[in-house]
Amino acid sequence: MNEVIKTLLEHRSVRKFKEKELTKDQVKQIVESAQSASTSSFIQAYSIIGVTDKEKKAKLAELAGNQSYVENNGHLFIFCADFYRHQVAAEMEEKDVSATLETTEKFMVTVIDASLAAQNASIAAESMGLGICYIGGLRNNLPEVCNLLKTPERVIPLFALVVGYPDQQTEKKPRIPFEHIYHENEYEQDAAAYKKELDVYNETISAYYKERTGDARQDTWTAQMAGMLEKKSRLYMNEFVKSKKMNLD
Rank of each mutant, 00 (worst) to 15 (best):
H11T: 00
H11M: 05
H11V: 00
H11C: 01
R12K: 15
S13Y: 05
S13L: 09
S13W: 01
R15C: 13
R15T: 04
K16C: 02
K16H: 02
F17W: 11
K18H: 15
K18V: 10
K18Y: 03
E19T: 07
E19K: 14
E19D: 11
E19G: 11
E19I: 10
K20Y: 13
E21C: 06
E21A: 04
E21I: 07
L22E: 15
L22P: 02
T23M: 12
T23R: 05
T23K: 05
T23N: 11
K24H: 13
D25K: 15
Q26Y: 06
Q26C: 14
V27F: 02
V27T: 05
K28I: 09
K28P: 00
Q29R: 15
I30G: 01
I30T: 10
V31R: 04
A34P: 07
Q35P: 01
Q35L: 11
S36G: 10
S36L: 12
A37T: 02
S38F: 00
T39P: 09
S40K: 04
S41H: 06
S41M: 08
S41Q: 07
F42P: 00
F42W: 13
F42S: 02
Q44D: 01
Q44A: 05
A45P: 12
S47C: 09
S47P: 11
S47D: 08
I48P: 09
I49K: 15
I49N: 02
G50T: 07
V51H: 09
V51N: 15
T52I: 01
D53C: 00
D53E: 14
D53A: 10
E55I: 01
E55A: 08
K56N: 14
K57C: 14
K57D: 07
K59E: 11
K59C: 06
L60Q: 02
A61S: 12
E62N: 03
E62F: 02
L63E: 13
L63P: 00
L63Q: 08
L63C: 06
A64I: 08
N66F: 08
N66T: 07
Q67S: 04
Q67C: 10
S68A: 11
Y69W: 13
V70R: 13
V70E: 03
V70C: 10
E71S: 05
N72M: 05
N72G: 05
N72W: 05
N73G: 06
G74D: 08
G74E: 15
G74A: 13
H75K: 08
